[in-house]
Structures are given as C-alpha cells and as structure tokens.
Design a protein around this nucleic acid. Structure first.
Lengths: 109, 109
DNA sequence: GCCGATCATCGACGGATGTCGATACCATGT
DNA sequence: ACATGGTATCGACATCCGTCGATGATCGGC
C-alpha cells in the first residue's frame, strides 16, 4: 500500500487550507485506518491484557488467514501505529498512541 | 463508494475492542477522508471567507475536472461532512464540524 | 542436522475506486 | 420557447487494494 510513517504534516483541517502535498500525506495516513480489519487489529491490541498481543492469536480473532493478517500488521507497523517485537518464535505487537494523536489533531476544531 | 452518514458508532479505539460491525462503520467513515482531493475540498470550504464555497470555483482550486469534483462533493455530502445549498444556478457547500468530531472522538485516548 | 512451527513474501485473482468525456438535468435570462 | 451555463449522472478505463494459496525465511527443540 506504499505507507510511510505518520507524522504531523499540517495545521488542523478546519484551521488552514491544505496544499497538495499535505493533503496527500494526510490522506495516506487516513487510508491506513480505512479498513475494518486494521481497525480491529488496533483495538484488539490496544485492549489486550498487557497492551500487547501475539501475532499467532490474531488470525482467529479477526477471522482472516495468516497472510492477510501479516499484510495488515505490516501496513500498521510501517505507519508507526504498531511496534513489532520478536520474542523467540513469536512476534508481539503494541500500539503507539502518539501516532493516533497526530491524526486526531488534524481533525481538531 | 457506498457511503452512509457518519455517526457515533463505538467507544474510542483504545478504550474497547471493536466488533466487526463497528469496525466496518468506522472504516467507511475514514475511507471518506482517505483521499487527498476530498481533504482539500474540506479544508478549502472550511477556510473560505464566509465558511462556504461555490462548486463552480472548486475544479480550478483542486485541479480536477468538474465531474470528478462533483463526485467527491457527493461523497462528502453523503457522509454528512458537507451540506449543499442550491442558490440559483449555483451550489454552495459548508462543512459540518460535528461530523469530524465523531471521528476525532474515535481516536481519543 | 533435521523437523515443526511461526511469520513474511510472492503471485494471482476479483472487486472497489479515482478520473474524465459525453450527456442529461435544471434554473435563469432573453 | 429557446439558448445558456452550472451541476449531476452515466459509462468506460486504468489503477489500486484486500484476500489467500504457495513458498521462503527463521527460530527452537529433538
């Protein structure tokens, strides 16, 4: 999906008109959130017992096959919304709340 | 694009795990924002002198042809992010900040 | 060193989406 | 009534994206 790290790119939408590059960056960021599987992965990981979840459990939780889940986790991690930590055979993921805050600020009044 | 009105659908992402329907609704809402032309239209209209802009000026401002702009305006209006008012031959658009607030709340900590 | 398990990557397929020319619709002014 | 001009709709096209089977890479245990 060609994702780059979500970063503060511009004033809030309602405070100043976006130029073309700012609009592209912000749209790319929202595109990451514009998929129901990715939203569920984010919320499942954020609400997991210790704030982290093993990739091995996720295909069953979101009802998708393993390559599909891996694909979505990559997109979320590339955007900086998740961190990935390899522990033995297993990959553990945590959310990075600051990245969501960037998008929230773009929608501020 | 099959858009329905943006409405509060769920607890903030980080506060509770989304079920499948909530995730679909929220993803559909973010999909509306996941396009650079639509983001520019929103910010241009929000920052216009009287908070409104005539559709006739928009193709030049966003550098797209008239059918393309009309298409994006329809998507934004269907989502409830814009209101459309016909005045004579011209269509005037205003933003509905409350709808953006719904999405901002979904990203709250 | 081999095997099994976990996860990423590749390739292919189908459906969704952005774009725009052509056209239809509708309100206004002559 | 007609012509004009702004806007929405239609149809077509190219591209993008989600999905998953097959495969590859890597790690731990036997």
């Amino acid at each position: 999906m060609q994702v780059s790290q979500i970063a503060p790119c511009c004033e809030p939408l309602l405070d100043a008109a976006l130029d073309e590059r700012e609009a592209q960056d912000l749209a790319a960021a929202f595109k990451v959130l514009a998929d129901p599987v990715r939203l569920r992965l984010l919320s499942l990981i954020a609400n997991a017992p210790d704030g982290e979840l093993c990739a091995c459990d996720l295909p069953a939780l979101v009802e998708r096959k393993q390559p599909t889940v891996s694909h979505h986790l990559s997109i979320l991690a590339d955007a900086g919304l998740l961190t990935r930590e390899q522990r033995g055979r297993w990959a553990w993921f945590r959310v990075v709340p600051d990245r969501l805050a960037v998008l929230r600020d773009a929608l501020a009044a």
